[in-house]
């Protein structure tokens, strides 16, 4: 658990994160069907697609919170099956911040709830500096602007070291300069051997593979169970 962002370029073990023939139903309707994807070390995958094509739903499914109607998800690390929860870090639409906590308290509790131990102070300070939040460290989160909140939500990727990052619209409410920071974070992560899936409308400025969900909206013909 050394601080690694800048100094040590420690590589993650070999990982294969795969989803095969994923189909998801929500509220009785199929959101998408037949999606297959595979991530290995140093893969950056963008999810594109119009609103309602299920980018967020796909991320919820990949992170194990929504059971797929068809298909399966697997994660292998060093060719052995690994627990998804221990290797993922996920950013949703919601920021997961408590208004009454200061930013430092947030970092503290967040790390303790994931790791059981308080974070190393220099790691927290470093993470805050990367996201240019260090001057806000002792301020209550309720006074933050929406851009500052979004950046604070990104802290989790720096505080906890996980090989696979899933991000849902990380650029929403974030200005151009801080998008560069986000791009830099992602670049470092990929360089270190991590993998990431980013659902976004914006151009992050990094090369990556693209999966467009526009083509996976199912024809509603397999609703035939009831008829």
């Amino acid at each position: 658990m050394m601080n690694k962002i800048k100094k040590i370029q420690s590589n993650y073990p070999r990982l294969v994160f795969e989803a095969a023939n994923l189909g998801v139903k929500r509220g009785g309707r199929h959101v998408f069907g037949g999606i297959s994807l595979a991530l290995t070390n140093r893969t950056l995958l963008y999810l594109h697609g119009a609103n309602g094509t299920g980018k967020s739903t796909l991320l919820r499914t990949l992170s194990g919170r929504l059971g797929p109607a068809t298909g399966n998800i697997s994660l292998q690390i060093d060719t052995e099956d690994a627990i998804l929860n221990d290797n993922l870090m996920v950013l949703d639409h919601l920021n997961g911040l408590k208004n009454t906590f200061t930013l430092l308290e947030h970092c503290n509790y967040f790390v303790r709830i994931i790791n059981g131990t308080p974070p190393e102070p220099q790691k927290v300070m470093h993470s805050l500096e990367v996201l240019k939040l260090h001057h806000l460290a002792t301020q209550p989160i309720k006074y933050f602007s929406s851009g500052q909140r979004r950046r604070a939500a990104l802290l989790k990727f720096l505080l906890i070291d996980r090989p696979i990052w899933l991000m849902d619209e990380p650029t929403v409410g974030v200005d151009a300069e801080n998008r560069k920071t986000l791009a830099m974070m992602l670049e470092q992560h990929i360089k270190k051997g991590g993998a990431a899936i980013v659902a976004t409308h914006d151009d992050i400025g990094l090369k990556g593979e693209i999966l467009s969900l526009d083509h996976y909206t199912p024809k509603q013909k397999d609703m035939g169970y009831w008829s």
Partner: peptide, 13 residues
Amino acid sequence: FEDGSLDDLAFSP
């Protein structure tokens, strides 16, 4: 649930 921290908790050990 509303502020998203329940989702974060789901990734705790």
